[in-house]
């Protein structure tokens, strides 16, 4: 997806017309704060990745968005309407998969979808059969449609859950961990599905703890950490916010260090290789130095140092440059930087 496509403006530049907009959204369970002052801004037409480690408040946030749980504080607007006050106008236009699929195990897949579709007055019974069949087709479940859900595998239930979210035309899809339990093929299909839906103008809000997934299908993302929103924006913005560093391979390490220091850049020593020593330069400009930073993009903003300028300076100083690369922080580095390392489930 092209993040600069119309309708996918940078979140920070728009204060209205957002598909999902929350202000100070907070949820307390007793003394524990599960979601703490979250200001989400999901632009229309985007595929919005909602990232965070387990227990960071993603699902609780989604429950509040959909009116399943009430907010302790703050407001929610979906499709420009206030939730949960106007749920009967909002929710028919929203398809959702919340915290895994859930069905009546004693009913068949088709019967389950019929029931959920019949649960609301906002659907047209006459087209129900056709819509259910189409949704089952879309998720590749047509062959198992008449089996009892009891006999479904986790992946099949997941597909059925997605089919349920696709029963009617939706302006917004909220998918909580949609690829959970899916085989690699199913994961690919979901990605394709999400892309094609987004191309038809549906805004897709996907929560995930899998970065690769978000990286591959989203245009925008938000990162949750311990109930707080750590960052949000287009993927390009998020990546740019992370720092970059240069990896330099040279036999003239001492000389190179001097040059880099002259540019106001910090320098670390990496491993020694047959071709010389590796220097890792400048996660950020040295303290007290100008706001200079390395930028790998062809155009540098004011105060930034172009990669080719660094190389030119090094060469001019007689440093033999055997390898030079600008390494931008991956989304994963960014994610870990924002949410902390380790396996501890956020409290």
């Amino acid at each position: 997806m092209n993040p600069d496509a119309p309708g996918a403006q940078s979140a920070s530049s728009v204060s209205y017309g957002l598909t999902i907009e929350t202000h100070g959204l907070t949820k307390r369970f007793g003394r524990q704060v599960a979601v703490d002052g979250v200001d989400l801004a999901v632009p229309p037409g985007s595929v919005f990745g909602f990232l965070g480690p387990n227990g960071s408040g993603k699902t609780t946030t989604i429950r509040m968005l959909l009116g399943l749980a009430s907010a302790s504080a703050g407001t929610v607007n979906l499709l420009g309407m206030e939730m949960p006050g106007r749920f009967h106008e909002v929710l028919p236009r929203v398809g959702a998969l919340v915290e895994g699929p859930a069905f009546y195990p004693f009913l068949s897949g088709v019967a389950n979808l019929h029931r959920l579709d019949a649960a609301t007055r906002h659907t047209v019974p006459a087209t129900r059969r056709a819509r259910v069949d189409r949704a089952l087709d879309q998720v590749g479940l047509a062959h198992a449609a008449n089996k009892r859900v009891h006999a479904y595998s986790l992946g099949m239930k997941q597909r059925l859950g997605i089919a349920n979210a696709l029963l009617s035309h939706r302006d917004l899809l909220v998918l909580d961990e949609p690829t959970n339990g899916l085989d690699p093929q199913g994961t690919r299909e979901v990605r394709h599905l999400v892309r094609s839906l987004a191309q038809n103008g549906t805004t897709v809000f996907v929560s995930s703890h899998l970065l690769a997934e978000v990286d591959q299908m989203c245009t925008h993302a938000a990162i949750m950490s311990a109930g707080k929103l750590a960052a949000q924006g287009s993927l390009a913005e998020l990546r740019r916010a992370g720092s970059a560093r240069a990896r330099l391979l040279t036999p003239d390490a001492a000389q190179a260090r001097k040059v880099l220091a002259g540019l106001g850049l910090n320098c670390e020593t990496g491993d020694v290789q047959p071709g010389g020593e590796t220097l890792l330069a400048a996660l950020a400009p040295a303290a007290g130095a100008s706001s200079a930073r390395i930028d790998g993009s062809p155009t540098a903003r004011s105060g930034e140092i172009l990669a080719e300028d660094i190389v030119a300076q090094l060469v001019a100083a007689g440093v033999r440059v055997r390898g030079f690369a600008v390494e931008r922080e991956s989304l994963e580095d960014r994610f870990v930087a924002l949410t902390g390392e380790g396996f501890d489930v956020a409290q």
Partner: peptide, 18 residues
């Protein structure tokens, strides 16, 4: 307990109606 309550509510069935 089956988890279907949340899907009925999101459908939306409406709590009073349900």
């Amino acid at each position: 307990s089956m988890g279907t309550l949340r899907y009925l509510l999101v459908a939306p069935a409406g709590r009073v109606r349900l």
